[in-house]
């Protein structure tokens, strides 16, 4: 019985690996998840969840236009991602409308523009794969682009790791000691746009925000150290994308949704059982038995 279980578990893991597209999907999704997870700890601490949602939706028309013009889609996405944030800032400053309202109306406007453009520009753009991701059907040029963007984001975040932490924690102090806060603000936004672009291949535009906030939120419940938070966030993101892809393979489920659902379950687990901040506080339970 036990042997049988291990045999099936073994084939559960190795069978999909015999397919080229599955190996590629597992690798690319893990890479993307790791990058989004890295960024995630900054976004959750900065309180930029809504901003992440806005940017990831706003890249839609950029992707469509870039496809239509034959440009790298990351370029279009990047311009519209940063553009949406600039527009949000402009409208907020020049009107009396509250920030969350401005964010909501700008990103839905951009998103709608994207959908309209897709319907107008008759091309080979697959709306479904933009909205819900297609990690299993990723092309070679997309692979190269994704790897390049991921490396870029990881390098930027690694170099400015501590400055970004300070920026999230106490921007006033950063400014006072001569650190360029303006630069850090736009660096974080740039990384956010780039991560949204690569993330949408895995899980699609609608769910990419989950990749950008859920791992960070999970890690936040599990540690009081910033470095550990980053590591946990990256690991939980990778593990969820692996689980998601396997589950979607075996049970024939939507891949993007499965990845995000796996992240949500890991978060719920942390929410319930995190040693210090979970509802049931495992640490206390164990301490009670000693």
């Amino acid at each position: 019985m036990e042997l049988c279980f291990f045999l099936t578990l073994d084939s559960f893991i190795t069978d999909p690996l015999t397919h080229e597209f599955m190996r590629k999907a597992l690798l690319m999704s893990s890479l993307v998840a790791a990058v989004c997870g890295f960024l995630s700890s900054y976004l959750t601490l900065k309180g930029w969840a809504l901003m992440g949602d806005a940017v990831s939706h706003s890249v839609m028309p950029g992707v469509v236009v870039a496809y239509a013009l034959g440009l790298p889609f990351s370029l279009g996405a990047f311009i519209f991602g940063v553009g949406s944030v600039a527009l949000i800032g402009f409208i907020k400053q020049k009107s009396r409308v509250k920030e969350d309202t401005v964010i909501g109306l700008v990103f839905t406007g951009f998103f709608a523009l994207g959908i309209v453009l897709v319907s107008k520009i008759k091309s080979n753009i697959d709306l479904h794969s933009i909205l819900f991701g297609s990690p299993l059907g990723i092309s070679l040029s997309d692979v190269k682009q994704t790897i390049f963007i991921c490396l870029l984001v990881v390098i930027l975040l690694s170099i400015f790791r501590k400055d970004l932490m300070l920026y999230c924690f106490d921007p006033r102090h950063a400014k006072t000691v001569g650190i360029n806060v303006f630069f850090l603000h736009y660096l974080l936004l740039t990384c956010l746009s780039l991560a949204a672009v690569v993330g949408l291949q895995s899980v699609g535009i609608i769910l990419v925000v989950a990749m950008l906030i859920t791992p960070g939120a999970t890690a936040y419940l599990l540690t009081d150290k910033f470095d550990n938070m980053t590591v946990i966030s990256v690991l939980s993101a990778i593990i969820s994308s692996l689980i998601g892809i396997y589950v979607s393979f075996w049970f024939d489920l939507e891949t993007g949704g499965s990845i995000v659902l796996a992240q949500t379950f890991i978060f719920l687990f942390a929410f319930l059982f995190a040693p210090r901040y979970g509802i049931f506080k495992l640490k206390k339970l164990f301490a009670g038995y000693k």
Binding site: L45, F169, D170, R172, Y220, D224, K225, F226, M229
Partner: peptide, 9 residues
């Protein structure tokens, strides 16, 4: 003025 829940020592 500061986020006391920030994971920092």
């Amino acid at each position: 003025g500061i986020d006391s829940q920030f994971p920092i020592s």
